[in-house]
């Protein structure tokens, strides 16, 4: 260990991410696929990056009041499902069995909670508290016959694809 005194090193917290902007398109309504966008958006906000989340197609469920508490996870079609704690695959043939989605959803929710990660609505609360912006997709709203009143109160608007393109000028983009 050196004892030579060096000049102080001061991190440049305030300017290093200036002007950086991130847009995340959340297009999935399965519980497992709701999380990547939330985790990355939350991380970006914590780095001082302007962050927009755009909810479209099945991802619309994440911000729809009557549905956002009931996202589910199905192991059907997911060949990366393993016996808990092991590498062995669970046979796909048993995945559509009655009760499987409920059981898998329960297990996934528990694993997520054990890590101290919030449920989806609570996570979106945190993202908005951190300065994140939530947007609903116009076409998804029309298809589902839903209006702004059916969505979380902190959704800033239902916007068209063109609006979104304008809004995200210069942003880095993630499609999930």
């Amino acid at each position: 260990m050196t004892t030579t005194m060096t000049a102080p090193i001061v991190p440049n917290f305030d300017t290093e991410s200036e002007g950086r902007k991130l847009a995340i398109i959340c297009s999935k309504g399965n519980l497992d696929m709701a999380y990547p966008g939330l985790i990355l958006g939350n991380a970006a906000l914590g780095e001082g990056i302007e962050t927009h989340l755009f909810f479209t197609f099945w991802g619309f469920d994440m911000i729809t009041k009557s549905r956002m508490d009931h996202l589910q996870f199905s192991p059907a079609g997911n060949t990366a499902m393993h016996i808990p704690g092991g590498d062995m695959h669970i046979p796909q043939a048993i995945m559509p069995a009655p009760g499987m989605t409920a059981m898998a959803t329960h297990m996934l929710k528990k694993s997520i909670a054990d890590l101290g990660v919030p449920e989806v609505p609570d996570f979106l609360d945190q993202i908005v508290a951190a300065g994140g912006h939530l947007w609903g997709c116009r076409m998804s709203a029309d298809m589902n016959k839903l209006g702004l009143g059916d969505l979380r109160d902190d959704v800033e608007g239902i916007i068209s694809a063109t609006d979104f393109i304008e809004l995200t000028e210069g942003a880095q983009l993630l499609f999930i």
């Binding site: 260990m1 050196t2 004892t3 030579t4 005194m5 060096t6 000049a7 102080p8 090193i9 001061v10 991190p11």
Partner: peptide, 19 residues
């Protein structure tokens, strides 16, 4: 690891400046 002086004391920090 760099060592810097703060209020008269030697302080160990990493390359980003965190203690």
């Amino acid at each position: 690891m760099p060592v810097v002086e703060m209020i008269g004391k030697p302080i160990h920090i990493n390359e980003e400046g965190f203690l």
